[in-house]
Design a protein around this nucleic acid. Sequence first.
DNA 1: CTGAAAGCGCTTACAG
DNA 2: CTGAAAGCGCTTACAG
Lengths: 333, 333
Amino acid sequence: MASIKEVAVAAGVSVSTVSRALNGYTDVREDTRKKIMDIAQELGYRPSQSARNLSSKRKENVAILISGLGSNSPVDEFTGNVLKGLNSYIQGKNMIIAMYGISSEMQANQKLSEFCREYSLSGVILAGLKLGDPYIEEIKHTDIPCVGIDIKLEGKMGASVLTNDIEAFREITNYTIEKGFSQLVLVKGKNEASVTHERYSGFKKALKDNGISDNSVDVLDCRFDENLAYKKVKAYIEKHKKNKGRAFVCMSDLMAVAAAKAIEDLGYSVNVDFIVTGFDGIQLLNYIRPRIATIDQNIVKKGYEGMRLLMRIIKGEDKPRTIYVKHKLIEGE
Amino acid sequence: MASIKEVAVAAGVSVSTVSRALNGYTDVREDTRKKIMDIAQELGYRPSQSARNLSSKRKENVAILISGLGSNSPVDEFTGNVLKGLNSYIQGKNMIIAMYGISSEMQANQKLSEFCREYSLSGVILAGLKLGDPYIEEIKHTDIPCVGIDIKLEGKMGASVLTNDIEAFREITNYTIEKGFSQLVLVKGKNEASVTHERYSGFKKALKDNGISDNSVDVLDCRFDENLAYKKVKAYIEKHKKNKGRAFVCMSDLMAVAAAKAIEDLGYSVNVDFIVTGFDGIQLLNYIRPRIATIDQNIVKKGYEGMRLLMRIIKGEDKPRTIYVKHKLIEGE
DNA sequence: CTGAAAGCGCTTACAG
DNA sequence: CTGAAAGCGCTTACAG
C-alpha cells in the first residue's frame, strides 16, 4: 500500500528524487539510490500505473486486442498460442502486457484511437481480426503502432506478422505431388478470407512448377467448414472412386481431418488410396492416424515476433513492417 | 483525444458537471445532461481510465490473472475457454476485463496485493494456478475479492468456481460399470494436483456403490502424462491380456486417448475388448473414433460464472463462496 | 546531485 | 442543479 511519498519520507529525500532513482536516472548519487531502492523493496512499493500513465508522456504500455472471443466462434488454439508467444517474449523483461477482448460490435462503438487513449496504450497487437473489421480500416490512418498477427495491416504505423501463405501452400502442394499423387483436388477455404486467395495462388504456382494444367484440377469450395469438407469429399469419392482426384489438398487442418474421415468411412485408406494434406499445424493432428502432412504455422513464434516488433517500433529501433514467420512442412505417414 | 475539459468548454458547463452527467448522477438537469452527452459523443470523448482510477475510490476494475502461459507448459484449450466464458458475461455490459499473464516466478517477486494496487484492480479472477503457487497462500489473508477457476481459494475474500470432481468421477465410473465393465483399472493423475484426490475419492464411492472391493482394482499412476499412460496401459494389457482389468478409467481425456491408442496398437477394439473413459471434455474427443466417454467440465461456463460471481462480490450483492458448475456425462460409442 | 512546484485528467465533498 | 477547489500518485522541467 506504500506510495512514493511514504518511500520518500522513509528515505529522508524528496518525492522527485525517489522517482528519479526508481526510474534509473543517472543523476542520483549512488548511495542515495541504494537507500531508496532498499526502502522501496522493504515497503513493497510499486508505482501506481494509473498515476504514472497520467503524468508521464513517454510510456511503453502495450496490449493485445483479441477479436473473436465471441461466443459463437469455436474455441481453437490460436488465442492460447499467441498469448504463449507474447509471454515468452516478455519473460524476464520486467514488463507486462494487458489483453483485451474486442468484438466487431465494440470496434464499431469505439475507435481504436479512443480505446488507446482510454487505456493509456502506446501500442497494440491485434489478433483474430477479420477482413472488414472496422479497426483494419482505421489503422491505415492512425499514428499509434499496431502489429497484426495473421492479418495485413496498412498505413504508416501498421505492421504485420504473417505466414508466407503463397510459398507455404506451394510447398505442401509440391510435397503432395512428389509423393506420387498428381491428380489434385483443392479443398478450398472461404473467399472472404485473404489467406484463401494467397494459398490458392501458391497452389497454382505448384501446378505450374509441375506442368499440371489448371483445369485438370477439381476444386471443392468448403469455406473452412469441416462438415462441408466431409460431405463434399465423400460425395466426390463416391462419384469418381479412385478414377479421378486422388489427392485432397486442404486449406486447413480441420478440413483435412474431415476429408480423411470421409475417405476412411468409405473404406479407403488415407495416404494409400487417397492422400490428404492440411494447413495450420494444430495439435489435433498429433492424435490422428495416419499422420496427415501439413504446414505448421508456428503461431507461438508469431506471438513472440509480434511482441518484439511492437516494442522495437515503440522504442524507435525499428519501423513498421511485415515479418514472415518461417513455416514448417510436417510430413505425413 | 478529447479530454473532459474540452467537453466542458464545448458544452459551456464546468468539468464537475460533465463528470456527474457522464457518470449518471441524478442531480443534473436533463437538458444539461443531454447536451453534454451529445457533445461527448460528437467529440469521441472517453474518460481516461488512468485519471479515473487515480481520483476515484469506488472502482470496479477487474482482471483475470492467468498462470501457466510459460513456454514449457503445453497449450491447451483451457485458457481460451475461460476467456470465452468471461467474455460472454461482459457482452453488452459495457465493461472490459484485462488479462495478465502471471508466472510462478512473478508471484514470488510481487505480492498479489501489490499487483492489484499497481494496476488499480478491485478484484481478480485467477486461472491456471497450481497447488503451492504463492498467491494461493496470500489470498487467505487478502481483502481483495478473488475468484479461482478450478482452484479452491480460502480466506474471507476467496471464492471458487469448481467442478464437483467427486460426484463427476463417481458418475463416470458408475457409467463404466453399467456398461458391463466392472474389472476396473484406474489411470491416475499426479498426486500434487488436488483434483487427483477428489476424483480418486469419487472413484472409491463408485466402487462402494457397486459393492466392488478396493483391492480388486489396479491403479496405474500416470501423472496426467499421456506418454506414461500409453506405456503403462500397453504393458498392462500385454501382461494380462483380457483376463484382468478391462475398463481403463482415466483421470483426464488425454490419458484416455493414449490408453485407447495403446489398446488399438495391440490389436484390440476400444469399447469392445476394453472400455476407456476420460475426464475434461476436450475438443479432441470429437475427432477420436470410437468416441470415448467423458465428463465435460464446461470450462466456458466456469469462466462465465466466475466473472459473474466476482462482479457480484465487488458490488456487495454476494459473498465469496464456492460455486460448482454442473458437469455433463458424455457417452461413448 | 537534490528539491519545490506544476501538471497529467479525472472525481468528489462542499458551498451555494 | 451547478461550479470552484482539493486531491489522487506520479513525472518532469526548472532552479539551485
